[in-house]
Nucleic acid binder design. Structure first.
Lengths: 115, 115
DNA sequence: GCATCGTATCGACGCATGTCGATGTCCCGG
DNA sequence: CCGGGACATCGACATGCGTCGATACGATGC
């Protein structure tokens, strides 16, 4: 047996690459905010799958400018997509973005360690 | 019929609560960093499910203090747990934390909108 | 055309966060 | 007992981010 108290079992190459880590981190950063999380949830939980900004504004005790800012962050990250119909603007969730997050944290290399 | 161009189909109560949003956001904030993401990945991808700090230090071009800081953030958020054995400190992934994230973004209220 | 309403953008402010060097603490070997 | 190695903590700095008020922009209605 090897009873030398070596601390360093070498790391295999299964780990996430730096580039991919940056991608995922960018996506998570967009979602790592209570307001934005609730925005996504509110939009997703509508029957139609979309919501207009006037609804979302009333759901928070925040300035319209702030809500608009959060919506833009989510849109830039690819979580939401915007469509303007008439006077109003509607936001829709892009399910692929959320699925991507779910996939990362369901992957055997991360969550499945104890499987 | 109602042909007034009302923009506001009311929001049902299916959405995430403010309190839960804050919880999830805190967890996501801990994970929304390229370095921390790679730390979790590195630890999870070891055969033993744990890694010692000396390994992790060498995997980044960062100060030991910075890596230690990131590890503490992950530990505080409940993503990692720490165990000191002899001279070395070992970190292990808490699968429940990662599963919680996966669950949130797999829930029908969010990802399943288009199902 | 002009006032109005819905939404996006701008500039500024304060607070949180990532990074570092230096120092502290604990444990082990000699 | 004392020196050294492994990590954690501290203080400081720069940058990023959430929030706001004010303003700009485009479509409607009168």
């Amino acid at each position: 047996m090897d009873d030398t108290p070596a601390c360093c079992p070498p790391v295999d190459g299964t780990a996430m690459s730096t580039a991919r880590a940056a991608e995922v981190a960018a996506l998570l950063k967009a979602l790592a905010d209570p307001v934005r999380l609730r925005l996504v949830s509110l939009i997703a939980s509508t029957g139609t799958g979309e919501a207009c900004v006037c609804d979302l504004n009333e759901a928070f005790e925040l300035t319209q400018a702030t809500v608009s800012h959060h919506l833009k962050v989510l849109q830039t990250a690819g979580v939401l997509e915007r469509e303007k119909r008439g006077v109003w603007a509607y936001y829709r969730v892009r399910p692929e973005a959320l699925a991507a997050v779910a996939d990362v944290f369901s992957s055997p290399a991360l969550a499945g360690v104890r499987a």
